[in-house]
Design a protein around this nucleic acid. Structure first.
Lengths: 329, 329
DNA sequence: CTGAAAGCGCTTACAG
DNA sequence: CTGAAAGCGCTTACAG
């Protein structure tokens, strides 16, 4: 037995494929098909175990009911959780999700977007890499729905879902101040990505407010040489003249590496030095370390809602959603 | 401008779509199409920025060049890493991967498999849930290539890629013995899944070998009530009459929760009690805790290799691959 | 209320 | 060496 098609159902009952299609797509109301026939078709389809062919549908209708998700690295817990919630939520709308990784490379991002375009995804949810704006603009030019997630390019108006990085970072830094820290170091990525700058700005604002800002306490690290860069930065900061008493790590990865280095140097947290970080690091043992908790399920939900809305209803003016992130102490 | 199709190229050059298709699929050798025309077609396709329509291709050929991946939970680092490597490797073959989650529910597994079937994936890579064998058998009956990953059902012969759980667990337990432990507890899932039993058997064998086996030291926990179950088990074991001096945790999740509980109880690891676990837990601070390291990239690669081979060359007798897992101390 | 027919973009026997 | 044509399974104007 081959696969059951709409034609098989039609010929079995003795009606046209058009009628079957109509019924099976729920377009039989509005005085189209008689209640009786409609029921018969539905029952026959079920009994024959009919499954629609997605490709034929997609080819004909131009829609694939698939969303392309582009993240930096699915094995990073932050993105893995985002992906999880995006899938769960997309599932409710009947959309599948194809997940791809960029490893923070704009080249790879272009490649993945192109693969997903080839797969005819109806829309994109993208965590863009640095220097990846061209790729996003192209999507816009082609009128393909895309919502940026976590990061955005201020120069190109797009739908975006993220958190209020500035205030979250400010709160995080203020927390260290409240604990009595006077010399708070920042370790962040060297990047032009706006969300990273916002985190930095939040830190700067908090410190500038009480005259504790010192640019020498800011260390920027490169994604490609992250371990060495962080190790060197932490070492310099700790062994230098400034008596560092606090650290703000701007991502979970930076946090993990930084804390490890501190441990290696036999610096106890939080006894010798206080720290706070952005995103949870997957370690029960540091559950005592305060961190900025992004509302991951909500971020995923919003991103899906928007992209599905764009797919179905076209592209009005883009929305820029900044959710609140909570400091968990 | 609409999308460029094979027809556009054909009419622009003045040849048939058949010829264009032949050339663009690399079937122009063997004295089919003249070198010159072939070149012209290729160049024109490129200049017109032709992208083949995947759905038309899939509809016509019956192949989607997509692999369906079914895991328990993409936000678990073990599966996230597996997914990452599966994608990277599948990409080399030109296959996309759709990832779905089951949350260890056979119901959800059936649903996901059915969604992926609807998406017409060419083959499956599945980390099956308990009681999920029926679903796998159905795939077999329908001659759809499927390779099981991490877990398998001994009663149904299928392609499978996993690790040698028995010996890995034995080694892990022996490590604790070498450290001088006499009362080693096991915390594992209450499940009929064979790989979990193998881990248990490895533990039992190691202990039985030196007459230290004591069934009261084995605690089984349920997936749905895992935190309470582990907390209770650890507490009972520690506060009971047996002077537990070692723990073997059979998964990363169990490990995390167990270690957390130990910390809560102010038991120091490894001073007061030694532990070893299966899979790495994402915590730099416990880098000192020995763990069984599964060869995740290799597992992903093998699974992809097999499923692609099955898709392309049909289904000979199934292979059962058990890779070695290393104990990292 | 229902059917005949075109067409989405491709591949693949078949004929020349 | 190349083309005309059928057909994959569906949807959707159009006609009745």
């Amino acid at each position: 037995m081959g696969r059951v098609s709409i034609k098989d159902i039609a010929s079995k009952i003795g009606v046209s494929t058009a009628t079957v299609s109509l019924v099976l797509n729920g377009k039989d109301k509005l005085g189209r098909v008689s209640e009786q026939l409609s029921k018969k078709i539905r029952e026959t389809a079920k009994s024959m175990n009919y499954k629609p062919n997605g490709f034929a549908k997609a080819l004909r209708s131009g829609r694939s009911e698939t969303i392309g998700l582009v993240v930096a690295d699915i094995s990073n817990p932050f993105f893995a959780h985002l992906a999880f919630h995006i899938q769960e939520h997309a599932d409710r709308y009947g959309y599948s999700v194809i997940i791809t990784n960029t490893n923070e490379s704009p080249k790879k991002m272009e490649k993945m977007v192109s693969i997903l375009k080839y797969r005819q995804v109806d829309g994109f949810i993208i965590v863009p890499t640095e220097n990846g704006s061209r790729c996003i603009e192209e999507l816009h030019e082609n009128k393909i729905p895309v919502v940026l997630l976590d990061r955005y390019f201020p120069e190109i108006p797009s739908d975006y879902v993220g958190v209020d990085n500035f205030h979250a970072s400010m709160k995080a830094t203020e927390h260290l101040l409240k604990l009595g820290c006077k010399k708070i170091a920042l370790i962040t990525y060297k990047t032009t990505l706006r969300h990273a700058q916002e985190r930095r700005d939040g830190y700067v604002s908090a410190l500038a407010g009480c005259d504790l800002y010192d640019s020498r306490l800011i260390k920027e690290v490169n994604h490609s040489t992250i371990v060495e860069d962080i190790n060197r930065s932490v070492q310099e900061l700790i062994l230098g003249d400034n008596k560092i008493d606090g650290f703000f790590f701007t991502t979970n990865t930076i946090s993990s590496i930084g804390l490890k280095k501190l441990k290696e140097m036999q610096i106890n947290v939080p006894e010798d030095i206080k720290t706070v970080c952005f995103d949870k690091i997957e370690s029960f043992d540091f559950s005592t370390i305060p961190f900025v908790q992004q509302p991951i399920p909500e971020m995923g939900k919003q991103a899906v809602d928007i992209v599905v809305d764009r797919i179905r209803n076209g592209n009005p003016s883009p929305v820029h959603i900044e959710l609140k992130a909570e400091l968990i102490v």
